[in-house]
Simulated assay, not measured.
Amino acid sequence: MALCTAGALIAGGVAIAAVTAVSWVYKYVTGRHPDVSQQLDSTRFRIQDVANGMRCKACDLAGFASSYGGSAGTEAAPGA
C-alpha cells in the first residue's frame, strides 16, 4: 500500500514538473517572458517603495516633520 502511494505521489510530482517546464518553454519561445533584468528592477523598485512608505510612517508616528509628505515647517520651535 505504501509503495503504491509513494508511486502515485512521485508520478504526480513528475507530471507537475513536466507541465511547468512545457509552460516555461512555450512562454520562452513565444517571447512572453520578461527579461531577468526587468524582473530584478521591478523587485528593487517594489522594495524601495515599501521602505519609503515605512520610513514615512515611522516619521509620522514619531512626530517628526519629514520631507516624505509630512508637515514640514509647520511645527513651532520650543519657546517660540
Rank of each mutant, 00 (worst) to 15 (best):
M1A: 13
M1F: 02
A2E: 08
L3V: 13
L3D: 13
L3A: 08
C4L: 15
C4M: 15
C4K: 15
C4E: 15
C4F: 14
T5Q: 15
T5F: 06
G7N: 05
L9A: 03
L9T: 11
L9I: 04
I10Q: 05
A11T: 07
G12K: 04
G12I: 03
G13D: 04
G13N: 04
V14E: 01
V14N: 00
V14I: 06
I16C: 02
I16W: 11
I16Q: 09
A17D: 08
A18Y: 10
A18K: 05
A18V: 09
V19C: 04
V19S: 09
V19L: 05
V19H: 03
A21G: 05
V22M: 05
V22D: 08
V22E: 05
V22K: 12
V22N: 11
V22S: 12
V22P: 05
W24K: 09
W24H: 13
V25F: 13
Y26D: 04
Y26F: 09
Y26L: 07
K27I: 10
K27T: 04
V29E: 01
V29M: 11
T30P: 01
T30R: 09
T30V: 10
R32L: 04
R32F: 13
H33E: 10
H33D: 02
H33T: 14
P34W: 00
D35L: 12
D35K: 14
V36I: 09
S37W: 04
S37K: 14
S37N: 13
Q38S: 14
Q38R: 06
Q38T: 04
Q39K: 15
Q39N: 12
L40V: 09
L40C: 04
L40H: 08
L40R: 11
D41T: 11
D41S: 07
S42Y: 02
S42G: 14
S42H: 01
R44N: 15
R44C: 05
R44K: 10
F45R: 07
F45E: 11
F45L: 02
R46E: 08
I47L: 11
I47K: 08
I47E: 00
I47M: 10
Q48T: 13
V50K: 00
V50W: 05
A51S: 01
A51T: 04
A51Y: 07
G53Q: 10
M54T: 06
C56A: 14
C56N: 08
K57V: 09
A58P: 08
C59T: 12
C59W: 06
D60P: 03
D60E: 08
D60W: 07
L61F: 10
L61I: 03
A62I: 03
A62N: 07
G63H: 03
G63K: 05
G63R: 08
G63W: 11
F64T: 01
F64C: 02
F64L: 05
F64A: 14
F64K: 13
F64D: 01
A65K: 12
A65M: 09
S66I: 02
S67D: 01
S67L: 13
Y68I: 07
Y68E: 11
G69T: 07
G69P: 01
G70P: 02
S71W: 01
S71A: 08
S71Y: 06
S71K: 15
A72P: 03
A72S: 13
A72N: 06
T74K: 02
E75F: 07
E75P: 03
E75R: 15
E75G: 02
A76T: 15
A76M: 09
A77G: 01
P78C: 00
G79C: 06
A80I: 02
